[in-house]
Every structure is written in C-alpha cells, then in structure tokens.
Write a protein that binds this DNA or RNA. Structure first.
Lengths: 225, 225
DNA sequence: TTAGGGAAAGTCATCTGATGATTTGATGAT
DNA sequence: ATCATCAAATCATCAGATGACTTTCCCTAA
C-alpha cells in the first residue's frame, strides 16, 4: 500500500479518507458521512477524526460547514503535483529549470527595461568568486542573478515556477550531491547580460543554452554512476 | 489582512501560528512552544490547537515528534507558490505553457521512442474537428495530444508541471473567456509530429513555436481590451 | 390552500479531563 | 567514564459534555 510507517492515527485516518475521495467513492460536492459515522468507519476517536478531516480541509480536498456537514471540494489536490515534481529525478528537475533559464533570457531580450540591465550588471558585479565570499554566499548570489534574468522576462508565472524549481533543486543538491556540480563561469554570465541587452532573443537564449549544457551533462554523469 | 471572516477558531489559530513562522520569529528546525503554552498564547483549547497544528503539518510547515515536540520544517509553504501562479495573468500562464510545449517538442525530437510517434499519430487521428465531436470533447483530445508530446520528451518533471498549467489555464478560460481562443489547426499538429519523428530538435521546436505565436497574440489582444 | 414562524433534529465547533506512548535528559551504580 | 534505569516533558488518543449553526418539517394563521 502506501507507507506502513504511519506514525499516528490521524495521518492514517486522513489517508483512508483520501482514498475514499481519490477512489471516486465520494464525488465532488457530495456530503461525506458525519463525524460519528467516521468514528465507527475508521475505528478512532472523534478528536482524531477531526484532525484527519482538518488535514484534508487544509489541503483543499474537503470543506466543513458547521451545522450542515463535510463536503468534498476536489478529488485531487493540486499540491500533490508539487510533491510529484519533487520526486522526479534531479536531472529532470534541472533540465526544466535550465529550460526556463533559456526561455526567460529569450523573453528578457525582447521585453527588458533599462533598469533590468542595470540590476543584472550590479548583481553580477557583487557575485565575486567562491574563494572570495565562500560557497554558501556565492551560490545564493548566483541564484539571485539567474532569478533576476527571469524577472526581466516580465512574466510573473515564470518567476513563481522558477523559484519553485530553484528551491526543490537546492534542497535535493544539499541532501545528495554536496557541491559536485561545476562552478558557473563569470565570463559566461556577462555574455548572458550583454545578449539580453542587445535585444536579440536567439542570441540570449543561445548564451544560456551553451552555459547550461555542460552542467546538465555533468549532472547526468553523476546520477547515472 | 487576510480574511476577517474566520469561520472557526482552528483556522484562525493556524493563521496565527503561520504568522509566527513566516514572520521569522520561529526559524527552521526550531522547536515551537508545547501544546499547553500554545493554548495560553492562542486562547483556545488543546483540541483546537492540535487541529491548527495538524493543518500546518499537512501543509508541510510543521512537523510533530511524539515525546519530543513540534518543529518548524519550512518557513514558506510550497503550495502557496501554485496559488500565486494561479493569480498571475492568463497571458503569462499561457506563455509558460507554450514555452513548455516548444521545449518539450525539442527534447522529444532527441529522445522519443518509436511507440511515442505511433501514439501521437493515433491521438491526432482521433482528434477530428469541433464540428464532428463537439467543443468539449475536442478540447479534451487536443490537450491529450499536447500532453503526449510532453511525455515523449521523457522528462517526468516537465509532464507534471505541464499538467498543472493545463489545469490552471482551462479553469481560467472556462471562467472568463468562454471559448474565444483560436481553434488549433490539424495541419500544424501533423507537422509537429513529423518534426519530432525526424529527430531534428530545432525543427520540432520551431513547428510548435509558429503554432503558438498567433494564439498568444490573440490572447494578448483579448486580455488588453 | 398557502405562506410564515418556530420548534426540533442533525451536524460541526469547542472545551475539559484523563490516560497512553515516546523521547530526552538526569541520576546513580559499576 | 560508561551504561542501565528512571523520571520528566511532550505529543497522541480517548471520552464526555456543551454550544452554535443549518436544515427540515410541522403547525398555525391568513
């Protein structure tokens, strides 16, 4: 089944309720059995049932109406999509983020404002090297630079999704690889800025693409071995 | 602030706890006050405190360890990112999805398996036209086709994120535009399949790009007016 | 006959008290 | 110094009672 490592009954009960929902036995808009019935069905106390329901409510699957009942709001929670993304292999995640980097640069070349370029140059100047500021700070500033490129694209949805991948990837790298990815090149970063400033979308995209290719290759090697 | 229409104390309490976390007063890894203390702080009963904590646990912000305490797992919930994406303008969302379409086709050209091509041809043949199968079914099959392209890219993370954008966009379109986007062209779809089958990544990407451009333009016009 | 009011049942919301299970740190003996 | 043991702290769970809100239905009055 799922995981046998259920640490508490409330989570276990929530899992059972979720199964009823995702399994289609309870449809959207339908009212589910009342608390007393759930107590019997799940074999736990009322407080535990309420905690389980509360968990599913906070996930958007259920909705409680005092005096009326508890209703199914959705059959699949959108947050689960993020969990599934997190569970895909690191190479796939990195590939998507790299893709976003490339296309963000393309859009930035077309739509950037003057202050965007100034900001990129400033961030690049502050970046320094690992030797100068330490790995932690350097990675942070590197991320800030690439994020600024995405912001320059003028697409808010892209910024959000880029942030998500950045967070997921840094988490994964922290817990597995521990700094074995190649260090980004300052020269290549400068070329990205110039390409965007030139207003040539293809040149901007290409500048990021050649930049990402070796990293992606290295990552593929590390993960396959 | 948020909503003053808090219907229940548990949600309200969860909101207060969330504020402590996102406000930085409780840092990641730190143990938060025990239940009895939270009862005093929040002015609610233990059961209500537990429901509030349970909600935040299910959202990934907190983590409870029996016998030890409750700890902060993250300072910002990842699910909120999706909400923010949903609140960005439809044009931005569409642009990101179109971008994913283009790059998925590029990867598919490089990595597709023979059965992927067969599947795409089959889906395209089943697609028919709006006049034949009705708008609802047609849109559904059109989505299935494009999803298959993304699947052919062999990148699971991309499939997940593509699904998310597809869901968000169809929701938004249903509630606002009501079918004013241009109808996709069967001829153009066939060209996408052939381009992927040819194994030429640039040709595949270009075939989708020219396909998306007019739709994006139309969408920009509709939303600006 | 119909519209309105109100009672009653059903349901979730909340509080209180008690007990069990687990972790953690201190205590004490070896 | 090390290890076993114990006690305190903490979350997990159960049980009972009361309040608040919604829905339904019946009864009354027009």
């Amino acid at each position: 089944m799922k995981q046998a490592i259920r640490t508490n009954l409330a989570d276990s009960a929530a899992g059972n309720l979720r199964a009823e929902i995702t399994g289609g036995r309870w449809t959207v808009g339908e009212r589910i059995p009342n608390e007393a019935t759930l107590v019997e069905m799940l074999g736990v106390s009322r407080g535990t049932v309420r905690e389980a329901v509360r968990a599913l409510v906070s996930q958007g699957l259920l909705e409680t109406r005092q005096g009326s009942g508890t209703y199914v709001r959705a059959t699949a929670d959108p947050a689960a999509a993020l969990d599934r993304v997190r569970q895909t292999c690191l190479r796939d995640q990195w590939e998507v983020r790299a893709l976003l980097d490339v296309e963000a640069a393309r859009l930035a070349a077309l739509r950037h404002k003057p202050e965007d370029i100034a900001r990129l140059r400033k961030l690049l100047a502050e970046r320094r090297t690992v030797a100068e500021v330490g790995r932690e700070v350097f990675v942070q500033r590197d991320i800030a630079f690439h994020r600024a490129v995405v912001q320059a694209s003028g697409n808010e949805a892209m910024v959000e999704i880029y942030d998500f991948f950045t967070a997921a990837i840094t988490d994964a790298i922290k817990s597995t690889l521990r700094g074995e990815v190649p260090e980004p090149d300052t020269q290549a970063h400068a070329e990205i800025v110039e390409a965007i400033a030139s207003g040539d979308p293809d040149r901007a995209a290409a500048s990021v693409r050649v930049f990402m290719a070796p990293i992606l290759l290295q990552l593929g090697r590390l993960l396959s071995s």
